[in-house]
């Protein structure tokens, strides 16, 4: 089975965000960019279903369940690096859809639909959320556009005869769905722990092919639907006060009227 994994290039999660003084956006100049952490989990999941995971006890991953992994990124030229990271982790080839502006999830989903139609995967594994826009939309939108079933926020994915059994992290606990393939799955944090690519695999990844495309290749009008009015700093919280003893703490909470 072929799997498509969309990977987004985002500001590294360790870095502090600076809002531009003119309120037009967030300043990303000269900052480290990385693969969206949920997408690393998505790549890892696809690779485990391809290679198996013999070192995990009682593993439900079977080598060969997945036969080909295509990593896709939609973004600037440098998003190639994000695809290379996916290739070094074990993806087989890449597709870069070059787009300058930050596309909205709806436009991304439309482009992904075009890629799905061209590639015919049985499964698309996306991150549940990009940690820059915090939208949590693209997978669900892609499912709607394709009329495919979806299982979002996955913490376990089992593949058996044309179906996927997916355990989802929901408010209140865990829910397991059976979905027919082809399907959309989005990853949550507990699905797996992504690997670091080894040096030999990073070298090998340099030789794996990446196709270059544009939104127009898929007939997608990527014009934004939302106009940015402004981007502002969040209200600053007055904090930093310390208490020396527990009694002082309790007195303070009483005075604040919260106990």
């Amino acid at each position: 089975m072929k799997v498509l994994v969309p990977v987004k290039r985002v500001l590294d999660y360790n870095l502090k965000v600076r809002v531009k003084p003119d309120g037009s956006g967030v300043d990303l100049s000269n900052l480290k960019m990385s693969m969206n952490p949920f997408d690393e989990i998505a790549v890892e999941e696809a690779v485990r279903h391809k290679e198996g995971a013999p070192n995990l006890p009682n593993s439900h991953y079977k080598a060969g369940a997945v036969t080909e992994i295509v990593a896709v990124s939609i973004g600037p030229e440098q998003a190639q690096e994000t695809i290379r990271t996916a290739l070094a982790m074990g993806a087989d080839r890449g597709v870069l859809v070059k787009a300058d502006a930050d596309l909205e999830p709806l436009a991304v989903a439309k482009i992904l639909k075009g890629i799905v139609e061209a590639e015919q995967p049985q499964l698309v594994i996306l991150g549940k959320q990009a940690i820059d826009d915090d939208s949590n939309q693209t997978g669900q939108m892609l499912a709607a556009l394709l009329d495919w079933p979806q299982a979002t926020f996955a913490s376990k994915l089992e593949l058996t005869n044309g179906r996927a059994s997916v355990t989802r992290e929901v408010d209140g606990g865990l829910q397991t769905l059976a979905v027919e393939l082809p399907a959309i799955v989005t990853t949550d944090l507990r699905l797996n722990e992504p690997r670091y690519a080894s040096l030999p695999n990073i070298m090998k990844a340099k030789k794996k092919p990446i196709d270059m495309k544009t939104p127009a290749d898929y007939g997608v009008d990527a014009a934004p639907r939302l106009a940015v009015v402004k981007v502002a700093e969040p209200p600053k919280r007055q904090g930093g006060a310390k208490v020396k003893t527990v009694d002082e703490l309790v007195a303070g909470l009483k005075a604040a009227g919260v106990i």
Partner: peptide
């Protein structure tokens, strides 16, 4: 208005839809 970047920025958008 909605938070982005883990609430480190607040985005105000106008929808054209």
């Amino acid at each position: 208005v909605r938070p982005i970047y883990a609430g480190n920025a607040m985005l105000t958008v106008k929808s054209r839809d």
